[in-house]
Amino acid sequence: MRQGFVPPRLRHTCCLKSFDTLEDRPAGEGEGRRLKKGRTGPTNIAIAKAGKFNKAFPRRCEARWPRVPFVSMYPIRSSLRSVSGLCAVGCFVLCLFAVRLGAVEITEGPTVEVSPTNAVVRWTTDVPAGTRVRFGLATTALTSRAEGEVGTAHVATLPGLRPGTTYHFAVGTARFALATNSFATPGLPAAAGTVATPTPPKPADTIATGKTAAPAAPRPPPTRATWANVASLPDHFARHGADFHAKDADDYAAQAWLFLQRAKTDGLPAKRDDDGVLRVFDPKSGAFAAYNRDGKTKTYFKPGRRGYFDDQPGTRVDLRTPR
């Protein structure tokens, strides 16, 4: 197989994320603020009601080969009388078979052999494919890469690692991430050569979207259990969802709930009002949320005015202190 040739089934992988073509521009970035901060009245409402939040999807990859019409126009009789014709028919049948099977898949691994400053990642695929590992200190920052040979048994060496450090990585081809995982390098120099036992691989799209929560992040309950007035949620989402790049109302509600959990963990500034309403603000991100006494969300947005949280009523509370 010549270098650069990609079997048709590898190209027919629309369900996979592409390293090179992925666009992670958050939905409607900035547009929500412009709408909201237009300071107009119902005109602004009408725009917001139109729901013009851009959805960003990774570009679809297309099956570029085989080109069935080309093959079908080939003179079948003459091809059967010649070796080249037999090859053409054979290739056609193989390609149809390959496309039916679907995308390249990992059959084993990835496994990681780590030393304090290097790691060797191995995996196998069901068909020949390229070898690329992207790695870094966070799932959203896989800034380094290592490559290997085209084949079904893939090996890539990750050089220049720091001892005693956790790295996240994604394995795949030059275009597609097939699996993600992480490993930790041992400290100097005792445990060199040990074989890491990585956790089960995660779906490839978790790193491609960059929206994966931290591993220890709690799982949000259903929206009806976290949002105070569920009937009003579509309106809050339409108005404020773009502040957090929420992909839908449930995602928006889940982020609001997670914000409260993070506030309790990180001790974000918070105020408790006489009626039990809790107001939380994150000076770093500018996010603000209000919750009823029972913890259900009233609203969640990013104020545009400085001092908004300071002007809110209530008594400062430390959420890290058990109440």
């Binding site: 107009t40 009245g41 409402i45 009601k49």
Partner: peptide, 17 residues
């Protein structure tokens, strides 16, 4: 807000209610 809402023809706002 009231003025603008009236000028817009007083449309019902909510999607959920």
């Amino acid at each position: 807000w009231r003025l603008h809402w009236a000028e817009e023809g007083m449309p019902w706002f909510s999607r959920g209610v």
